[in-house]
C-alpha cells in the first residue's frame, strides 16, 4: 500500500517560537491518521503546511507524491481542507456556498449545482439548503464546511479538530459522517484533542507535544505502552476494603492501590474477563458488600498522561494562537 501523505523532518518557526521541531509521519492511502496533541502542540501548523497555507522552514512534505512547496498548485487540486473555524459564508445559503466552491473548481454551473445537491443530501442539509448559513447550528456549519471541502472529490482530506465546540450529539453525528467518508476510500488526516475521537475514527495515531512526535502506532499499541488492564472495585465499608484486598491479592500482578475515602480498590491484573469472573467468585459469600466492579483498559487519556506528564487539555493555549 502506498502512502498518500509523507512528511519528513518538518520544522516551522514563528519568530523565536519553534512550532514544529522535525515532525515525521505518513498516512497510507485510504486510511485515517489521527494527529493528537494538546492545544499548542503544533497540530494545526502541520495541517496548514500540508494544505499549502504555510511554508515550512525545514523538512519536506508530499501529498500523493506532490511537494507542498514546489508543487503547491497541484497539491491544492488533490486536497480538501476543513479548518477549525467553519469557513462558510454566513450570508450565502448552504446551496450557494457549495455551488460557489464548485464554480471555483470550474466544474461548470450544472455540474456544480448537481454536486452541491448530492453533498447537501449526504450531509443531511437538504432541508436547510436554501437558508443562509448564519441560521445553521454549529454542527450544521461544520457539515457544510466538510461538504465544501469534498466538492472536487479530494484524494486527501484534512480535518482540523472537526468536532471542537460541538455538543455531544452533533459530535456523534459528525463521527458517523467521517466514518462514511473513510468507507468510500478517502485518505484522512484528522487532528483532535479528543482521545475518544481518535480511538473511534483513526487507524493509526501520531501523538505530538510541543512540536515533536512523542508516540505513534495504533490505539492498541499506544495503550500497551502505558500498561495493562486493571480491576476496579468499590465496596460498602472500609473493613470490606481490607477484606477484599486479602481475598484478591493472588490475582494482582502488581501492588493494589486502595482509597479509603472512596472505598475503592484498584488492582493491576492480567487475563481479562476470566479474571473478573474469578474475582467475583472469590468475593462471593465473603460478606464484602460490592457496590461496583469493573475491568478497565487504559484509554488514550492515560496514554497522554503517561507520555507527556500532563493531560491532553492541560496546556498553554497561547502557543496555538501564534500558529495562526
Amino acid at each position: 500500500m502506498s502512502d498518500a501523505v509523507v512528511v519528513e523532518g518538518l520544522v516551522k518557526k514563528f519568530g523565536d517560537f519553534t512550532a514544529l521541531r522535525g515532525v515525521d509521519l505518513t498516512v497510507a492511502r485510504g486510511t485515517v491518521l489521527g494527529l493528537l496533541g494538546p492545544n499548542g502542540a503544533g497540530k494545526t501548523t502541520v495541517v496548514r503546511i500540508l494544505s499549502t497555507l504555510l511554508r515550512p522552514d525545514g523538512g519536506r512534505a508530499e501529498i500523493t507524491g506532490l511537494d507542498v512547496v514546489t508543487q503547491a498548485d497541484q497539491v491544492r487540486s488533490v486536497i480538501g481542507l476543513t479548518g477549525q473555524y467553519a469557513a462558510v459564508d454566513e450570508y450565502l445559503t448552504g446551496e450557494e456556498n457549495l455551488e460557489m466552491v464548485g464554480r471555483l473548481y470550474r466544474l461548470g454551473k450544472k455540474e456544480s449545482r448537481a454536486r452541491a445537491g448530492q453533498l447537501l443530501e449526504r450531509f443531511d442539509l437538504t432541508d436547510a439548503a436554501r437558508r443562509p448559513a448564519k441560521t445553521y447550528s454549529g454542527g450544521m456549519r461544520r457539515r457544510l464546511d466538510i461538504a465544501a471541502s469534498l466538492i472536487a472529490r479530494p484524494q486527501v482530506l484534512f480535518l482540523d479538530e472537526p468536532t471542537t465546540g460541538l455538543d455531544p450529539r452533533s459530535r456523534l453525528g459528525m463521527w458517523e459522517f467521517i466514518a462514511d467518508l473513510v468507507s468510500d476510500g478517502t485518505t484522512i488526516l484528522l487532528t483532535t484533542q479528543y482521545l475518544e475521537e481518535a480511538d473511534r475514527l483513526a487507524d493509526r495515531m501520531v501523538v505530538i507535544d510541543r512540536g515533536s512526535v512523542i508516540a505513534r502506532g495504533t490505539a492498541d499499541e499506544l495503550k500497551a505502552q502505558v500498561g495493562g488492564e486493571r480491576l476496579e472495585l468499590t465496596v460498602g465499608s472500609v473493613e470490606g476494603l481490607g477484606r477484599a484486598v486479602e481475598l484478591l491479592r493472588p490475582l494482582a500482578v502488581d501492588d493494589p492501590q486502595r482509597d479509603e475515602q472512596t472505598r475503592r480498590l484498584t488492582l493491576p491484573v492480567k487475563g481479562g474477563a476470566a479474571t473478573l469472573a474469578e474475582a467475583l467468585r472469590l468475593l462471593e459469600g465473603s460478606g464484602v458488600e460490592l457496590l461496583d466492579v469493573g475491568l478497565r483498559r487504559p484509554d488514550l487519556d492515560d496514554v497522554f498522561l503517561t507520555l507527556t506528564g500532563h493531560s491532553a487539555d492541560d496546556a498553554d493555549p497561547a502557543t496555538e494562537e501564534q500558529a495562526r
Binding site: 497555507l53 479548518g83 473555524y85 469557513a87 459564508d89 471555483l104
Partner: peptide, 17 residues
C-alpha cells in the same frame, strides 16, 4: 478572521482571484 480565506487559499484557483 473568519477563515474564509483559508478555504480560498487551499483551493486550486488563481492567487489573484
Amino acid at each position: 478572521a473568519k477563515g474564509v480565506f483559508d478555504r480560498f487559499r487551499s483551493l486550486p484557483i488563481a492567487r489573484s482571484a
